[in-house]
Design a protein around this nucleic acid. Sequence first.
DNA 1: GTGCTTAGATAGTGCCGTTATCCAAGAAGG
DNA 2: CCTTCTTGGATAACGGCACTATCTAAGCAC
Lengths: 214, 214
Amino acid sequence: MRLAELSRHSGVSTATIKYYLREGLLPPGRQINATTAEYDEEHLGRLRLVRAMIQVGRVPVAKVREVLGHVDDDSLPRSIRLGAALWALPQVPEPDEDDEYVQVAHQEVDKLLDQLGWENAKQLTTISPAYRSLVVAVAAFRRIGYDFGAELLAPYAELMYRTAVLDVDNMETYASEAERIEFAILGAILNEPVLQALHRLAQEEETTRRYGFE
Amino acid sequence: MRLAELSRHSGVSTATIKYYLREGLLPPGRQINATTAEYDEEHLGRLRLVRAMIQVGRVPVAKVREVLGHVDDDSLPRSIRLGAALWALPQVPEPDEDDEYVQVAHQEVDKLLDQLGWENAKQLTTISPAYRSLVVAVAAFRRIGYDFGAELLAPYAELMYRTAVLDVDNMETYASEAERIEFAILGAILNEPVLQALHRLAQEEETTRRYGFE
DNA sequence: GTGCTTAGATAGTGCCGTTATCCAAGAAGG
DNA sequence: CCTTCTTGGATAACGGCACTATCTAAGCAC
């Protein structure tokens, strides 16, 4: 498969593929001679992964390169390779620890984790982007006058935990060992739009059930 | 409250506040004379809302303006204002109806709605952005070789429905009408980052429970 | 009255994903 | 053989967007 064909199969312009090659997001093709290179299915798969991260996951190019570095590093333990990818997903700006709302949000989130018994997540609070995002979002709610404390969060967290169990189950059944890392990344990235859309659909269903179409 | 004070109270720079005023995201202050304008608590609240939408919700400035336009349009009935604001939110690329993956995705999503008995949502399939988002997302999965059909979607949809019930319950506890509109907007915009963060935290918890930290 | 603030207007910045242009070397087809 | 296309490589430009900076004339506060 040549560059032009790779472009046609993936729907990505040759200019952009060249850009990704330059940026190290795609490994170079097998060089046949000075003006020809051969690409294969693996390149196509990697290209789709890159696109999913950039377009759907909104992961910056530099971060994608970093993540792929971990993914390809066979010396790292599996959970680290996976975690590296998940943690690269878009982040909210660092919480301002001096802000009083942020401090209260920290307390509420910590209380939530205690209530739920999420012992592992508790150990990750200093480094996990997900934890920080949650704090920022809860603080934003408080700042505009709504209390989204541990009691209100708990039922949501319970539902999200069940969702995560489904995720991991799916990962275990639907991917061969070799594919798991890439599948997990794609799953994490593509799953969220699905969940979001289902959530909004469910909101429409429930509000019309309660209030009708008006 | 003058511009500088508004800036101090909100933590937003005067230059940025001026930018928001220019863009129509904030109503102008009460003009005292040619060089002085007075801002009040309402401006502060609106500014916080705008910031939350932009920073936490990642809503583009132009979209924020549109949403606020609906919220402030007193000539519209409440339900319309709410719906208009909510539906203005997602910017989903139109699914390409000629694409074979999109066609299969349509079938799967319709099958899902039938299985779940979401009769109201079924009636909205032609206009609902959420429905279109779901189709696009499911098609994306199929395109990379993973089947995310109605059977796999169903348990997720069930969980999201319960989430939506929580949403609407929460909204109903805020009795005042003015609060409800704002809360609903916030629910739509800020709830999702909270859910997303909880989801990711739950994934971290569950994967470490199953596989440990190594 | 000196220095700071204001609204308003306009221009510039920085980031970042992408696209465009040019080149010399080679391949493909008739 | 000759023409046309493609390649990798290098460099520059583009476009969107959320700000940020600069300037001005007018007014306020000490």
